[in-house]
Amino acid sequence: MAIFNLNINGKKQQVDVDPLTPMLWVLRDHANLVGTKYGCGNGTCGACTIHLDGMAMRSCQMTVAQVGNKPVTTIEGLSENGDHPVQKAWLEHDVAQCGYCQAGQIMNAAALLNSSPNPSDEEIAGAMNGNICRCGTYIRIRAAIKTAAG
């Protein structure tokens, strides 16, 4: 066990955990931030996507030690009131069916728009290909990303 001083959604948070604990489980079990979802644990579904230093990362593939005190943003910290342009576009297009994967989709889409404000269909497909939606809402996700891009 070791003490880590984390910087999550702009707040300092101290946890005492095994340094090999994936960030996903630190968020879910220790920081009580359960918006970040467990889907596969091996980096193949994208449900656990968070931002580390503004970049989209799979939190199941990063240990708490690797994260250290770098700024982490989770779905809960993407905006104060759910009014980030990507969140608003998700609501406008009524994207979710079961909704379980959508936090990861939104976090990945927000990072995509940070690096490429007006992505083409091909860029969207490429950037989002690691995020599985078992309900098959891909067409709405693509439309929502285009709306958020404005």
């Binding site: 918006g35 809960e76 609501l91």
Partner: peptide, 19 residues
């Protein structure tokens, strides 16, 4: 057409699921 009643909670990552 009516939007999903849980839409806002879902995009905010609120705890809605069993897990």
């Amino acid at each position: 057409p009516r939007k999903n009643v849980d839409g806002l909670k879902l995009v905010k990552g609120e705890p809605l699921f069993g897990l």
